[in-house]
Design a protein around this nucleic acid. Structure first.
Lengths: 341, 341
DNA sequence: CTGAAAGCGCTTACAG
DNA sequence: CTGAAAGCGCTTACAG
């Protein structure tokens, strides 16, 4: 393992002082052209690469941004992380990543937050776990933190969220326009903003559409594949004359599809189905599913871009909320209801 | 933004010297119990959190590991990254992530490698882009680098790879045992180890099974969805009496499925199909696909664990190769060939 | 325009 | 067992 080149080595090689090399490399102040040339040649020859740790320590900023996420298991979160990553890179930052082992493990999120804080990251974009984290609350008084995808509890910071109510409204209006009136909602029981807002969007759109909501058509369960499976089983088992169902998450959607197959419920002949997230499996299966499409890459990119704006700009204490639009993608899983008795 | 607590603050608060606090926190040397208690109380009260940047600079090791990957788009790579991440976390390291914008962008991989090197990461686990990178070559003389999933060109380092030839052999034997003899292979044209080894595994298994290979049944294209689509079109367009096809990558597999639908080729009635990677879409579509399953999480975890062993252990210059087994998962897309004329 | 000096927040020989 | 001093590799006032 050969030893690494330091600023001092370059200075000696070029026959100038250390600060001079530093100034040239950072483009600060004017420097005699002949010196600059000599130094640049030495840098090149020795293959000098500044030590960012030392630089960070001295400058009191690291150029590192942390991304805390619920987990890369879900395609949605992986894509969002890629957006964060690309924005960081494009704007000259480095991203450090922490994904909680278990999808909703608040404990490991806390551990990651502390760890990253000890590296003195310049800011964080976090997909909060489902329990509010007091440490992040404290941290946000020192560095900018942006929440993305969802918020939990009372949030007092900045957030980039899907326009949940709006897309949900599109979905409901689509079903109503097809003639459905017995529409069920399967949603996650967790108290996170995504679920709350999608639920509210559903209720509002039904009301605006003049379709009464039967509370027995509102079924909640874990927002996992198993949760979706159970919820759909309960719905069908209830014997209610439902003709369409909307599911709030992609995981639950997979469970619903599995349950429908198992129960012999045909889609869309027996029941129309609208899900969340435009993932490959949703397009590949038949019937291809109608879904509310999110743009996770853009959400991540935007969140990180705004974070950097906070990091580099003035403090700016007033919290803001940035909404990203979603879009209903109509495919084969939605059709007019059967004329049944 | 309130200012952060330093070691000096703790020392003053506890009425001891800075080195004493440092020693206590690092558990080095014996310290008078009463001092230790006083110091720990101050640490607690002030909420002290060591500055890892300063520590890193002094110790000449950062506790940061970098993961360079072709991109988080593919589920496979996202899951692998999660494995790397978890191993790093479990063993006391922090992971910094770099995913190239474009799946096969060697240029951005180089940029990331340099960036991470400037942070003086302790090691790297990299999924190499398809062009060999001389910088990584140089870097590996200074810090340990582990390649995972695939290697490119002459590799002289350590690698964790799927047992490609073995799983491919399983796939081929499965088809032969069903009675197939006209078996096609659709593979990626890129010169990466995965493609090369899967190709070789195919050839060997066919030979061992006593089934001659018609070179017209060997079709290569980009390892993307489009590439798979084209490859399958060409295969079917050729009019050859193929009864089964094996596809080396998940992306190409999606293209094959799309092309089959478009051409009205029924699976498995007309052609049996075996793909790669046990992803959700492969299970959700019908027929559910028979695939060679990899374990990306384990690959990532193992690669990172071995990396840390290198980082903490003696140099150990001899390159090694670690193989992870795959497994054929038989589902509905493979069946005996039709008795055709 | 250039260099000598101080300092970022730690750890680790070195004295005592 | 404890503290004063040096130093990790940089940058940035401060002199000249």
């Amino acid at each position: 393992m050969k030893s690494i080149v330091r600023l001092a080595d370059v200075a000696r090689h070029a026959g100038v002082s250390i600060p001079t090399v530093s100034r040239i490399l950072n483009g600060v102040q004017t420097v005699a052209p002949e010196l600059r040339e000599r130094v640049m040649k030495s840098v090149e020859e020795l293959g000098y690469q500044p030590n960012r740790m030392a630089k960070s320590l001295r400058e009191q900023r690291t150029g590192i941004l942390a991304h805390l996420t619920a987990g890369l298991n879900a395609n949605f979160h992986a894509t969002l992380a890629r957006g964060v990553q690309d924005a960081a890179f494009d704007l000259g930052y480095t991203m450090i990543l922490g994904s909680s082992h278990h999808l909703e493990n608040g404990q490991s999120q806390l551990t990651y937050a502390k760890l990253f804080d000890s590296y003195r990251v310049d800011g964080m974009v976090v997909v909060p776990s489902s329990t509010p984290d007091p440490y992040l609350e404290t941290l946000s008084s020192r560095i900018p933190i942006i929440e993305v995808d969802r918020t939990v509890g009372e949030y007092s910071r900045h957030a980039v969220l899907l326009n949940n109510a709006e897309v949900m409204g599109e979905a409901v209006r689509h079903l109503i326009s097809l003639g459905h009136r017995n529409i069920a909602l399967l949603y996650g029981i967790e108290l996170v903003s995504t679920e709350v807002e999608r639920y509210q969007g559903f209720m509002r759109a039904m009301k605006e559409g003049g379709v009464p909501v039967d509370p027995r058509f509102l079924i909640s369960d874990d927002f996992t594949e198993e949760g979706g499976h159970r919820a759909f089983q309960r719905l069908v088992g209830s014997g209610l004359p439902v003709t369409a169902v909307v599911v709030t998450t992609n995981e639950m959607l997979a469970g619903v599809v599995g349950a429908a197959r198992q129960l012999g419920v045909r889609i869309p002949e027996d029941i129309s189905l609208i899900g969340m997230d435009d993932e490959r499996w949703v397009r590949m299966m038949s019937p291809a599913l109608t879904v509310m499409a999110q743009t996770p890459y853009e959400m991540g990119y935007e969140a990180c871009r705004l974070l950097i704006q906070c990091v580099e700009g003035q403090p700016g204490n007033t919290p803001w909320l940035h909404r990203i639009p979603g879009q209903l993608v109509v495919r084969e899983s939605t059709a007019p209801p059967r004329l049944s008795g």
